[in-house]
Structures are given as structure tokens and as C-alpha cells.
Design a protein around this nucleic acid. Structure first.
Lengths: 195, 195
DNA sequence: GGAAAAATGTTAGGGACTAACATATTAATG
DNA sequence: CATTAATATGTTAGTCCCTAACATTTTTCC
């Protein structure tokens, strides 16, 4: 096996993330020191920073973006951009939701209730926005996406964030999928009056 | 004069902000220490933190939100929400733009080019989003704004951010007002195909 | 002018993060 | 298997953001 190294790296990475998450949920984000996380994972604090650039990244990092880009690109181009993003998201979200609802809820709640994390949520979502833009834009990726595509992408991210926020505010009781659909509806029919 | 205190506070606040801005533009955000900013403004570093909770807030803080809320609320309620926000923004933005274009450009560029600031931009814009939501929602403010209003508000903030980003990426050469209008257009006609 | 209140300074310290260097562990080679 | 190179990890010392506690000054009010 020439890949013992990578497997060990994956293990430490996972150990760090899980230790961090456990401690965050138990004692709160601010009260948990990097030193402690590292100790819990059996490494030194330097090793932590070699795996995650900052303390915040342990929570913020996720890796769905390439998938999202492909899904958007796979939508029929005759559909309006907003619809393509919507269908792409809803083609995969229900499965993730069904499988990891609790983890998703805990993570979202931690994100929303910790000021410094909440403030960086959009940064983490920025990756998804880029994915949407690229999925909507020129398949070759040669030229930058037009402003319209970028606006739609950012609006979709905003709608998703709003839906998840409402979900967490409601203690995760309501159906997130329904909220997401409602949010996209509001985007697609911006002329409709509220309440 | 019973308000010498407030005037002096305003002066120190302004001195701190200007010193910070000058040093940031000259040496970069990271390279500028709070100690230095305080010294430049003739106070100690503790005083700095008594005026601004964090180093980032010197750049991020602005105070347009109450105005925005009022402007949105003042729009005719027969108009669709998106239109109300658009008209509200465009009723005041051109004047600000005409007067403070260069300062606005420098500030935006600093924000966008400094990772830690960029990541907190949406947080700073969150205040505007709340203002939009309140402006769109129940005038009494008794009940929370409906999801539709929140989505529209977040989408508008997203559109504005996208427009400003494009403006800065273009070195501030294009007309920002036109970009903002184009961004709102893309929101109002999400069905239109791109390019 | 003197007391109360508010602003500011001083000092000490915690905690995130970095740089430099030392050490250990794994991989490739003879 | 021993050696050497590459990579991962640890140690230490230090910078900087930010806070707490307390002392000192400045402003306001009586």
C-alpha cells in the first residue's frame, strides 16, 4: 500500500473535525480552544492548523460545490436560469436532507447561533454561488459569467440561506424542503404581494 | 455647552476611522496594527476597542440602515416588494454615488480584496437586509416579516453586492448606477435567458 | 470648588495563529 | 536491511487581537 499516508491523513482530519464538533456542541464554540481540540484528537495544536487554516474552517468547510455545478449544468438550457438552479438543488437536496437531517440541523444551528461563524456563513456559501454561476455560464468556462447569471446565483444562495435560517429558527420542526420551495417560489414570482 | 462630551467622542471616533483607513490603504489591512491606528489618532489601543468592538468594524460599520428602512416603507404599497426596494435604493443612491464615489470605491475595494473583510461583508450587509425586511413588512413591526419578504430582501442585498463587486472588478470605470439597475432587472425578470 | 460620572490609560493576560527549527515517521532506493 | 529523502508532527518562542481590572484623568453637575 503506497497510500498509507493519505489514509492516515484522512483519519486525523476526521478525528479533528469530530472532536471539534463534539466540543463545540457541548461547551460552545468560543469556549472551546484549539489546544483542546487538538488534544482530544491526539495531536498538537500545530497539526490542527496544518489541516485547517483557521478554527472556523472546521465548521465552515464542505465539499458539495463541484456536484452542484455539474447538476446545474446538466439542466436543460431552455429553462430559465433560476429554474435550472432550483431543479438542480432540489434534485439532490431531499436525499441529503432525509439522510443527515439531524447533523445538518446541529451544524446549521451552531453556525447561526455563533456570531463569528454566522458572519462567515456567506463566505462558505460563496463557493456554492460560484458553482451556480459556472453551472449557468459558458460550459467552456472561457469567459466570466454575465451579470445576470451572477445575480441569479447570488439570489439563489440568498434564498437558500433564508430558508435554512427560518428552518433553524423553527427548531427544525417544519419541513425544510417545503421552505426551500417556498423561498424559490418567492424568487420566481417577485411581483406577488406578501402576506 | 452640555454636549462637549459627545462632540469630543465624535472627533475621536472620526480620527480613529480616518487614521485606520489611511493606514489600511497605504500599508494594507493585515499589516496595520491596532496599536498603530490608536497611536496615529493620539489615543491608546484600549480606547480604540471602546469605540469599535473589533478591528474589522472600523471598515464594516456604516449607518444607512434606518434611512433605507424608512425609504422602503415610504414606497407605495401597491407596488410589488421588489420594486419598492429598488425604487427606495435608487431614490438615494445616485446622490451618495455622485458625492462620495472615490471613497466608496476605495472602501469597496479594500473590503473585497481583504479576505477577512470580504468574508464579513455580508454580515455588514445583514443590517441592510433587516432594514429592507422591516420596510417591507408590517409597519407596526409587531409580527416577523413573512418568508417572501425576507427572500426578496436577501435577494436585493445579493443583487446590490453583485453589482458593487462587478463595479470594483472593473476598477470603478463603469457607471455603478447602471450596474445596480441591471442587477435589479435581472432579479425582476429571472425568466429571461442570459447572454 | 468638590463630588459624581465618564473617558482614558496602564498593565497583565488569554487565545488564535505563524515561523523556525528539531524530531519522528514513512517511502523509495541500493 | 540500511540509508537516504520526503513528509508529518512536535516544540518553542513570538506577534497580534482582544479582554479584565484597576488607576488616572477629564468633564459635568451641584
Amino acid at each position: 500500500m503506497t497510500h498509507w499516508r493519505e489514509r492516515k491523513r484522512e483519519r486525523t482530519r476526521k478525528a479533528l473535525r469530530e472532536a471539534a464538533f463534539r466540543l463545540f456542541v457541548e461547551h460552545g464554540y468560543e469556549a472551546t480552544t484549539v489546544e483542546r481540540i487538538a488534544a482530544e484528537a491526539g495531536v498538537s495544536h500545530m497539526t490542527f492548523f496544518r489541516y485547517f487554516p483557521t478554527k472556523e474552517d472546521v465548521v465552515l468547510r464542505d465539499d458539495y460545490d463541484p456536484l452542484l455545478e455539474e447538476l446545474v449544468r446538466a439542466q436543460p438550457r431552455r429553462l430559465p436560469p433560476l429554474r435550472r438552479v432550483r431543479d438542480a438543488v432540489l434534485s439532490v437536496f431531499p436525499a441529503v436532507y432525509a439522510q443527515d437531517r439531524r447533523a445538518l440541523y446541529l451544524r446549521s444551528r451552531l453556525l447561526l447561533s455563533t456570531p463569528i461563524l454566522r458572519s462567515r456563513m456567506p463566505e462558505s456559501l460563496r463557493g456554492s454561488q460560484d458553482a451556480f454561476e459556472r453551472g449557468l455560464g459558458d460550459p467552456s468556462g472561457a469567459e466570466p459569467p454575465p451579470l445576470a447569471a451572477r445575480v441569479v446565483a447570488s439570489a439563489c444562495v440568498a434564498a437558500l440561506t433564508t430558508a435554512i435560517t427560518a428552518w433553524v429558527e423553527n427548531n427544525g420542526d417544519t419541513d425544510l424542503i417545503a421552505l426551500v420551495e417556498e423561498a424559490f417560489d418567492a424568487l420566481e414570482a417577485p411581483g406577488t404581494d406578501d402576506d
